[in-house]
Nucleic acid binder design. Structure first.
Lengths: 146, 146
DNA sequence: ACCAAGACGAGAGTCGTTATCATCTCTCGC
DNA sequence: GCGAGAGATGATAACGACTCTCGTCTTGGT
C-alpha cells in the first residue's frame, strides 16, 4: 500500500520516455498525487494544487490524468458516486482495492492475495488477458454499525 | 446467472410490501429489466419502454431504479464509462460480476465461488458488514487478442 | 536566441443524472 | 362505486462531472 517515495521521479521519467514534455501541470499533478496516495478526484487535485499556489486549469488536470492512466502510472477508481478518482499505481504490480462505508462514506484500502488469485483464475477461465480489475466492497464499518 | 422467471412478480410484491403503490412506470421498468437481465442503462430502459409503446419519463426511470436499488431488487453496476447500469438481483444471493473487453467493449457476466469467499474473508478481516460488492475485470477478449 | 511542436488555461459545450412542480392516478375509507 | 388525499408520474429546468476548442505560452532542439 505504501507508494514508493520514488514514484514521482518514476512517473516523470516515464512521461519523458514516452516522448512527452515536462510541463507545469504534469509536474504539479504528479507531485500532488504522490502526496495523497489514495483516491483523489480530479476536483480535489485541482483544488489542492491551487491551494499550494499553482495555477492549473481543471482541463489540464483531466488531460494529465488521462495521460498517466494511459501509461499505467495512475489507476482510475470508481466508487459508485459518479466521480472518478485516481491514485498512483505502484510499479511492482502490488495494488489495492477499496471498502466504502455506506453510513459515513469512509473509504479504506485493502489488498488480499486470495482475491487476486481468484480474479486471475476467472480471467483465465474466460479466455481474457486481464490487464486491470477493480473491486469495490460496500457495507457498514464497525463504528457505523454500533 | 439465470434470473428467476418469478423476478418481476417478486419485485412488484416487494414494492407493495414496502408500502409503495403500483404505478405504470414501476411496472414498465420492472418488466423491461426482467426481459434484459444484464447491464441496462437508464437510457436503454427508457428507450426500450418507449419503443414498446410506453410513455415513461426519463426522470421516472431514474426514480424507479433508485427505489429498486434501495430495496435491493436491482443492482447498480458501473463499468467505468460514466454510465450507471442496472440489472435484477436474484433473491437467492447468487449474483454475477462482469468482464469488459477494452478492445471491442464486449461485456460478459461471470460468477466465481473463490472470488466470493475471498471477498467475505476481506470484509470480516476489516470489520465490515459487507452488503454489496462490485467487481469489474478489464482486459482483451480472445478475439480481440488474436 | 529562434522556432516549431507541444502543453497549457479559460471557458463553452456535452451528457448523465437529479430536482422541481403541476398534473394525474392509485388506494383506502365510506 | 365514489371522493379525497397521499403518492406517483412526466416534462423541463438545473446541476455537476467531464470534454472540446482555441488562442497563448512553454519546452527543447537547433
Amino acid at each position: 500500500m505504501i507508494v514508493s517515495t520514488a514514484w514521482p521521479d518514476h512517473a516523470l521519467a516515464a512521461l519523458r520516455d514516452a516522448g512527452l514534455r515536462s510541463g507545469g501541470a504534469r509536474r504539479a499533478v504528479v507531485a500532488h498525487l504522490a502526496r495523497h496516495d489514495c483516491c483523489r478526484s480530479a476536483q480535489e487535485i485541482h483544488d489542492g494544487v491551487r491551494a499550494e499556489g499553482g495555477t492549473v486549469g481543471i482541463a489540464s488536470v483531466y488531460r494529465v490524468l488521462d495521460t498517466l492512466v494511459a501509461l499505467r502510472l495512475v489507476q482510475r477508481v470508481e466508487l459508485g458516486d459518479g466521480v472518478a478518482r485516481f491514485e498512483p499505481s505502484t510499479s511492482d504490480g502490488h495494488h489495492h482495492h477499496h471498502v466504502v462505508c455506506d453510513g459515513c462514506g469512509k473509504v479504506e484500502p485493502f489488498s488480499d492475495n486470495a482475491l487476486e488469485h481468484a480474479l486471475e483464475g476467472v480471467a483465465g477461465r474466460l479466455g481474457f488477458a486481464m490487464d486491470a480489475h477493480e473491486v469495490v466492497v460496500r457495507g457498514a464499518c464497525d463504528t457505523c454499525r454500533a
